[in-house]
Design a protein around this nucleic acid. Structure first.
Length: 491
RNA sequence: GCGCGCGUAGCUCAGCUGGUAGAGCAGCUGACUCUUAAUCAGCGGGUCGUAGGUUCGAGCCCUACCGCGCGCACCA
């Protein structure tokens, strides 16, 4: 992926005229790619919003030219900067003949620096009456169409810069995403969590049930995997004596792509010593509430036409209860694996697959689509939760998954801190792996070595940042909240 | 991976029952000193995703491949 996913296309330029104009600029002694432009006083949005207060005031602005309306001896330009659009009025009388002729060398997409005074046109449009302007950077290709923008999904993702250039709502989405991430940091920092960074290159990808990407270190001649979770390194830090840690980082899962999945995605994981999953439920409510407030200014939001509110305490329901509630079997009555396979057959769920997958399928079959409002799904079967402590009934784990709109947005445990129980759970997973469950957790001897030095009782939580963004920002598709989603190289 | 759909000018899109490629924006030339999807007059622009096939003739029908989207599968 280094260097982007497309071949550079330098030839032929779609606009040979632009190259010609570039040469003319050079012949006039103007650097077509400009230089430092200091002393910018305002953004477009400020001028538009405070036009009357600023009227008559000298301003210096810079941005990209998105429209040119030439009227012989005068010209209107639409200049776009990060904040929005402002109109620039250039009169030959004001800037002089030589400067005015530079407009002939200007193309849509070029960057321009402008000095001028704020005024409102007769039609009421906030504008800057230019006293001078300077070309700052030439664009050799045209920007997307000014009215319809860039519509084709493939082009929007592949050339996200064009999408950002053309579609202001896309810029808004990614500002809101940043606001959400900042809300996570602010909330965690305020509660005394220490932000840390742990390795992306792992000897063994553990901490979740997923297939990893494999890579290789040449100098050490060492096979490595990209991480699939942050969990086991963060827990090592609790062994080391940090009491509250978190990381917001990219994880990589070598699996299919869908509206809800991207091979790399951003995960927040945090761990709180002397806590348990109860603390993590409080924290989840706070993180999601603060995210909504940061991005939307309120706790209510609409996702795909459905109303949600993350301002209230979330509903709680156990894994078993959720299945019962929606017409499924009473799994509390199940003892042996064969019992599970029996109810799976009745439900029409694949009964021959690995047992953890089967359990998950039963839940998805009966309950998951019905868990709409913010809900903590509690007490998953212990077999599918090898990193969590067992509940009073050892068939279940002290675990929860926060769910909104039928979608899992995270995962949390009262963490397993007994090295003995952890080893047992890993061995059980190894068993499952031998029986054909390719995604069972591998045994991590190095992590067990750490646990054997003692880890305090701990509550741990992971939340998928992209999923939260998708929900809060009403994105139909995870890729809408990822700047550069993975795409195949173009033919 | 499987199924369905899409791919026409730089962008947004038309293109009928198979008859030899269109519009708007963008570009170029000219006019215009308060326009704003500026306007007016004129001009240029296409391996119709790629490669085969059927046909007198294919943007259109068939096959394969490439890319994208959606659904399923896998996962969060």
């Amino acid at each position: 992926m280094a260097g982007g996913d497309t071949e550079p296309r330098t030839e032929p330029f779609s606009e040979p005229q632009r190259l010609e104009k570039l040469r003319e600029l050079v012949s006039l002694g103007i650097d077509p790619f400009g230089h430092r432009f200091t002393g910018i006083t305002h953004h477009a949005e400020e001028i538009a919003a405070h036009c009357d207060d600023l009227a008559g005031q000298a301003v210096r602005i810079a941005g990209r030219v998105r429209a040119v309306r030439l009227h012989g001896g005068s010209c209107f330009l639409d200049l776009h900067d990060e904040s929005g659009r402002i109109q620039v009025y250039v009169r030959k009388d004001a800037v002089g003949d030589a400067s005015f002729r530079l407009l002939d060398l200007l193309d849509l997409g070029d960057f321009l620096g402008v000095d001028g005074t704020v005024f409102r046109t007769r039609r009421g449009e906030p504008s800057v009456d230019a006293t001078s302007f300077v070309p700052l950077a030439k664009a050799l290709r045209p920007p997307p169409e000014k009215y319809h923008g860039l519509q084709e999904t493939e082009l929007r993702y592949r050339y996200r810069y064009l999408d950002l250039m053309a579609n202001p709502e896309v810029r808004r989405i990614f500002r809101q995403r940043t606001a959400i991430v900042q809300a996570f940091r602010r909330t965690l920092d305020a509660r005394g969590f220490l932000e840390v960074e742990t390795p992306v290159l792992h000897h063994q990808a553990t901490g979740a049930a997923a297939r990893p990407f494999e890579t290789h270190h040449n100098a050490l001649d060492l096979d490595l995997s990209l991480r699939i979770a942050l969990e086991l390194h963060l827990k090592r830090l609790l062994v080391g004596g940090f009491e509250r840690v978190y990381e917001i980082g990219r994880v990589f899962r070598n699996e299919g792509i869908s509206t809800r999945h991207n091979p790399e995605y951003t995960l927040m994981e945090c761990y709180q010593a002397y806590g348990d999953r109860e603390d993590m439920m409080d924290l989840t409510e706070a993180l999601v509430r603060e995210s909504a407030l940061a991005a939307l200014g309120q706790t209510r939001f609409t996702y795909r036409g459905e109303e949600f509110d993350v301002g209230e305490p979330w509903r709680r329901v156990t894994f078993a209860q959720a299945i019962r509630d929606h017409g499924g079997p009473d799994i509390d009555k199940l003892r042996a694996e064969e019992d599970w396979r029996g109810v799976a057959r009745e439900a029409g769920v694949d009964s021959a697959q690995p047992i953890t997958k089967l359990m998950d399928d039963l839940f998805e079959h009966y309950a998951q689509p019905h868990l709409r409002q913010p809900t903590f799904l509690l007490d998953h079967p212990a077999a599918m939760s090898p990193l969590a402590r067992a509940a009073a009934d050892p068939r279940y784990a002290l675990r929860f998954e926060p769910m909104i709109a039928g979608m899992e947005i995270g995962n949390a445990y009262t963490e397993q801190n007994s090295p003995l129980a952890q080893r047992e759970a890993f061995e059980q997973q190894a068993n499952e792996r031998q029986r054909g469950d390719a995604e069972a957790h591998p045994l991590d001897e190095d992590f067990l070595f750490a646990l054997e030095h003692g880890m305090p009782p701990t509550g741990g939580l992971g939340i998928g940042i992209d999923r939260i963004c998708m929900l809060l920002l009403d994105a139909p598709n995870l890729r809408e909240v990822i700047l550069f989603p993975l795409q195949r190289p173009r033919a």
